[in-house]
Design a protein around this nucleic acid. Sequence first.
DNA 1: ACAGGTTTGTAGCGCCCGCTACAAGCCCTA
DNA 2: TAGGGCTTGTAGCGGGCGCTACAAACCTGT
Lengths: 186, 186
Amino acid sequence: MTDRREALTIGATAWVLEHGLSGLSLRPVAKGLGTSDRMLVYYFGSKDGLVAAITEFAGEQLVAAMPTIDPNRPPRSARAWLDQAWALFSNPAIRPAMQLLFELDAVAVRSPGPARDAAAAVTERWLHVVGDVLSEFGISARARRGLTPLVAASLIGLALENLITESGTAPDALRTLAGVIDAARG
Amino acid sequence: MTDRREALTIGATAWVLEHGLSGLSLRPVAKGLGTSDRMLVYYFGSKDGLVAAITEFAGEQLVAAMPTIDPNRPPRSARAWLDQAWALFSNPAIRPAMQLLFELDAVAVRSPGPARDAAAAVTERWLHVVGDVLSEFGISARARRGLTPLVAASLIGLALENLITESGTAPDALRTLAGVIDAARG
DNA sequence: ACAGGTTTGTAGCGCCCGCTACAAGCCCTA
DNA sequence: TAGGGCTTGTAGCGGGCGCTACAAACCTGT
């Protein structure tokens, strides 16, 4: 049934969030889900099918988790939104998702396929979200053209750096970035 | 002998640049190098030893390839240096190295070990290089504090985005970033 | 109650994996 | 030239891999 397949997809994605995508093999995943490799092949056709389903679902989850603007609590400044976004990116509970994102990126960078599709969707959505936020702050379309990809790339780069080195430079960078955004409001 | 080990490390790194690090297994690598898996185990102790040697060497290579300032041809503006750095990052010949960098990052993000050490070394070196460049442009230490990690993270984020989506937003972002740097020269 | 399609369990095939035992080859010293 | 360590080739072990054949169990509509 489709329900069962969805449940397995959700469970397998959770397994991947915890254990990583790279070393995935059917039997351990199946055991973790209380089923057998036979069933995973039955529902997903092959290991590639399972991985595709996981990446697709994980991509949707990541897109849904983007730190957009809450209409009920609109941030009062660029700084406030950046802090809000950074609090999400550096939240330990979100860490597995960030790890999976960069794992997807690594696969996507080397070859096309479901991983690249998912990574590209997440990236484009992220650009869109940042663009909306900047628009909300009254930044002109002309200024947004360069500022949107700059802000989006900065946050991704800082998140990656933060996961690797924990050097703690992000707050300073975010303060500077907030100044850049404020200056663009004109 | 140590010479043989170094030669195998170099060759294995080249193999990984072409084929990726994640699916590495001894026999294909050995065949590619004209030797046997037996020899790789002999010289590196185990597969983990080989991977550690590769990541370490690749990390050194990446560090050595950073787009620092050429004293003979100092760039005349932030824009010029950014263009120079971006030309390197988006150079097709460098692409395998960028792919390996993000593959190392993905491993590093999930667990400590040689990959994290290498990735952290590359990241810190990159921060250092960017800091030097900004200093060269006469930007104060105070302004550099936030600007250095911002510029470093931006370029990494843009490089990643560029490899995944080829959306072509990087030039606009770089133009904006150049304006930010120039403004900081005060 | 029963037939027929859908779902699941058992067993195992062939393959590649990391790694090792063993012996032969090699080269340097005496 | 003989000995003895460093280096290499051959063969294979145990195990996990993706995947499949086959049959039992299950559910559903009549």
